[in-house]
């Protein structure tokens, strides 16, 4: 073994010296830097921003969109896209509400069933994409309409009220805001899954060059299928969170949530062409979007101009990513 060690020292150029390179650091961490700057600026703009009440509020609000963004990220790194997440959220919201208030189920099994049913919609999209070769955009567009339609049928178009003491337990203060804890656990879990499991590695490899992955003896189709299932499961859970916060299961939640999720991934440096993207950065991207909304609310900016500002901030964040990563190729 010691001999082997000597061998490489002779034959190979030394590993690049790990000197700190400020420019590279800024490029690699631009999402986090924007997030920190945003927090600093927000705390200067408003005294209420850094209060524990506001921060808790942000966490409660952002738990759902961030889970959706994580699911979206896994689809995006394979080179796909999932437009159905907003509608699958309604499945989570309405199914859990119906089970609890109309069938008298306990909130915990109701959550699990809601997530499982939501996952079925992801499997449907995933099968279309992986096994029929339909494009993710088209397949998930179909699922998007189907899922929301199903929710409207289930609720007959009326929001389902949830009584106090049922699903709202998962947003209650006495239990230390379970949805925040669940969200943090899932963020950590999926960040580790992406970095350390073969699943995480294979899906990013598929996004880089699926032919090469297939020829290396990996059955790419089932991996592609799995990303849509994960995305739908997380979306359904996010729907449950929303139902819990509003004490209603409604078929109208999650409108446009797919676009926020895509924006979060892209602000976090993911490429829609696939092969690039990180869970933690997508979470940071989601928080950036959430904080912008929050600070504008605190400063009483009316909601329509908020959208305009948000749009430009997405452009600015992504542009920054493009400009800083533009480096000359070596030979």
């Amino acid at each position: 073994m010691a001999n082997m060690e000597l061998e490489y020292n002779k034959n190979l150029p030394k590993e690049k010296s790990k000197k700190f390179n400020l420019k590279q650091f800024l490029i690699d961490n631009n999402t986090y830097i924007i997030l920190v700057l945003l927090i600093i600026i927000s705390s200067m703009l408003s005294d209420t921003f850094l209060t524990s009440m506001n921060l808790t509020n942000i966490a409660l609000q952002q738990a759902a969109p961030i889970l959706v963004a994580i699911g979206m990220l896994f689809v995006i790194v394979t080179g796909g896209i999932d437009l159905s997440v907003g509608s699958v959220m309604t499945i989570g919201a309405t199914v859990s509400a119906i089970l609890i208030s109309e069938m008298g189920a306990n909130y915990l099994p109701a959550m699990i069933v809601a997530v499982l049913i939501g996952t079925i919609f992801g499997l449907f999209t995933g099968i279309l994409v992986a096994y029929t070769g339909m494009q993710g955009f088209v397949a998930s567009l179909a699922t998007m309409t189907i899922a929301r339609g199903v929710s409207f049928v289930l609720t007959e178009g009326r929001p389902v009220k949830l009584e106090a003491g049922t699903l709202d337990t998962i947003v209650s203060k006495e239990f230390f805001y379970p949805i925040i804890i669940i969200a943090i656990v899932l963020i950590v879990l999926f960040a580790l899954v992406q970095k350390y499991t073969s699943w995480g590695r294979i899906i990013i490899a598929i996004g880089s060059n699926s032919t090469a992955v297939q020829l290396a003896g990996i059955r790419t189709k089932r991996y592609i299928l799995s990303t849509y299932a994960v995305s739908a499961a997380l979306a359904a859970l996010a729907g449950v969170f929303i139902a819990a916060r509003s004490s209603t299961g409604s078929a109208t939640v999650g409108m446009g949530q797919e676009l926020d999720a895509i924006a979060a991934c892209v602000i976090g440096g993911a490429s829609l062409a696939g092969g690039k993207g990180f869970v933690v950065k997508a979470v940071a991207g989601g928080l950036i979007l959430g904080l912008i909304g929050n600070i504008m609310n605190l400063m009483a900016v009316p909601s329509y101009p908020q959208d305009i500002i948000k749009g430009f901030i997405i452009v600015a964040a992504v542009l920054l990513g493009i400009l800083t990563s533009k480096s000359e190729k070596t030979v």
Partner: peptide
């Protein structure tokens, strides 16, 4: 086109 993941690390390509 068929052999390598050009935008990924040497490590990841070698053990694919």
């Amino acid at each position: 086109k068929q052999g390598l993941l050009l935008e990924q690390s040497i490590r990841m390509n070698t053990t694919l």
